[in-house]
């Protein structure tokens, strides 16, 4: 289980990184935390010609509250950094709670928030959290930057709305409106595993965002637990049957909505 050879680049600026990624002659990939990419490379399931490591790009290393109160997470920010930030725990409790379910401290120390979004494992927590919180994902490429709503970003298993030569530079999580409540639930085989199925829910005065994940090729945004059974398209795999995922999605959705409403104060 040793990776195949590749060219390694660790540019110091985003511009250089984009230039490297924009070179159509070489099949390059972004290396962020490496917590999904390197296992695939060790199994030789991924054999990129070149890696563009973000580790030296200081301009992507930030976790801050923007002018509109949104949480802005740069592409180098790790899941551990997010969890350590008291402002996140206080202002985005759903995000904080959900990310504690991502793997283990030894994985979150390197795994990035944006890497998890770009990787888009439909059983992963972060895509669901982004959708529930109405996040936007900022991507940069040869033609400049664009912002993509989470609703449009996750396409299918391990597939997102990135064009060739583009990369994610930031994820923005709007501040949950005052008076909102939240809930996060998942069933996993073991402590720290990807979810068999899970639910992230945000109840705001104006809108309810209920996200079911692990039950389709991407996280699904629904308004009501009554829709879950019909909306999900679960997988049968060796960890759980499709029927299991459907039933438990319904169950968790009901529980989560009730809890989020309670937290919202009625």
């Amino acid at each position: 289980m040793k990776p195949a050879s590749f060219d390694y680049h660790a540019p110091a600026t985003l511009a250089e990184a984009l230039e490297l990624l924009g070179d159509d002659a070489v099949e390059s990939r972004v290396l962020a935390g490496g917590q999904s990419l390197v296992p695939m490379m060790n199994f030789r399931l991924a054999v990129p010609e070149a890696l563009v490591d973000l580790r030296r790009i200081e301009e992507l290393r930030y976790l801050r509250t923007g002018a509109d109160g949104a949480l802005e997470v740069g592409a180098r920010t790790t899941q551990a950094e997010l969890l350590r930030d008291p402002a996140v725990a206080a202002g985005w409790p759903l995000l904080h709670a959900g990310v504690t379910h991502v793997g283990h401290p030894q994985v979150r120390s390197r795994g990035t928030v944006c890497g998890s979004l770009a990787h888009h494992d439909p059983h992963g927590e972060l895509p669901a959290l982004a959708l529930a919180l109405g996040a936007t994902i900022t991507v940069a490429g040869p033609d400049g930057r664009r912002r993509i709503a989470a609703e449009d970003f996750f396409v299918s298993f391990y597939e997102v709305a990135l064009e060739s030569g583009e990369m994610v530079v930031e994820a923005r999580f709007p501040a949950p409106p005052a008076g909102s409540g939240w809930s996060f639930r998942e069933i996993a085989r073991r402590h720290g595993d990807f979810a068999l199925v899970g639910v992230a829910c945000l109840v705001a005065p104006a809108e309810t965002r209920l996200v079911v994940f692990g039950a389709a090729e991407r996280p699904l945004l629904l308004a009501d637990p009554g829709e879950v059974a019909a909306a999900v398209r679960p997988l049968d795999d060796l960890h759980a049957s499709a029927e299991y995922r459907r039933q438990v999605a319904v169950q968790l959705a009901g529980e989560a909505l009730a809890e989020a409403r309670e937290r919202a104060g009625g």
Partner: peptide, 23 residues
């Protein structure tokens, strides 16, 4: 060598990491 067992854990700049998932 795929990040699950943790036998390879080291402290890198003070943080615990899987050394099998770092080049």
């Amino acid at each position: 060598e795929h990040g699950v067992c943790g036998a390879c854990t080291v402290l890198l700049d003070g943080e615990p990491v899987r050394s099998c998932l770092v080049f």
